[in-house]
Amino acid sequence: MMHINDDPTAAAEGVLQQDESLSKLVETALQESIARRCMQAQFSAQGRAARQQGRCSDDLFDANDVVTDRARAHASERGSPG
């Protein structure tokens, strides 16, 4: 189990790679966090748009039906009864 240090600066300095500065570590972490949040926002926006498009076209499927159909298809591909 990883122990979380009470002093984030000391913890960060403890994991710096050779020739890496604390400011570079913070800059990289910030860039990665921003990129992750942008991807999450884009994913959510695409999901909302797909849901709205499905509602407008009345082209929606019940999740349980989809899972059941996929399980049956998978079982038949493997040659076992579904």
Rank of each mutant, 00 (worst) to 15 (best):
L16Q: 00
Q42H: 09
F61V: 06
D65S: 09
R55C: 11
V15I: 15
A45I: 07
V66T: 12
E27Q: 11
S76D: 15
G82W: 02
H3R: 10
R78G: 01
L30D: 06
M39E: 12
R72T: 08
L60C: 08
S80H: 14
I34K: 07
A41K: 10
A50D: 06
D7N: 14
A10W: 03
M1P: 03
R70L: 15
Q31T: 11
R51K: 14
I4Q: 07
S44N: 14
A29F: 08
T68R: 11
M2L: 11
G14N: 00
M2K: 08
Q52H: 09
E20L: 00
V15K: 05
C38F: 13
R78E: 10
R72K: 14
D7K: 13
H74D: 13
E32Y: 03
E13Y: 00
D58W: 01
S33N: 12
A63G: 02
G14C: 02
T28W: 09
E20G: 02
Q31A: 12
S33T: 11
R51I: 12
D59H: 09
Q53D: 01
Q46L: 15
D19V: 03
R51S: 14
A45Y: 04
A71Q: 15
V67N: 02
R55M: 12
G54Y: 04
Q17N: 14
L30N: 04
Q31D: 13
P81H: 05
A75E: 11
H3L: 09
S23I: 04
T68Y: 08
H3Q: 13
G82P: 00
V66D: 01
R37G: 07
F43G: 04
S57V: 10
E77Q: 15
A73R: 13
A45W: 01
R72G: 00
L60E: 07
D6I: 04
P81R: 02
D65P: 00
Q17V: 08
S33F: 10
Q40P: 00
A35F: 06
E77R: 15
V66E: 08
V66P: 01
D62E: 14
Q40F: 09
L30C: 06
R48N: 13
H3E: 12
E13D: 05
R70T: 11
Q52E: 13
D58L: 06
E32M: 07
R78F: 06
Q53R: 07
E13C: 07
I34T: 08
A10I: 05
G79H: 01
M39G: 03
M2W: 03
A71H: 05
Q18M: 07
L16G: 03
R72N: 10
L22A: 02
T28F: 09
A63S: 10
M39S: 11
L60D: 02
E27W: 04
V15M: 12
A45F: 04
R55Y: 09
Q42N: 10
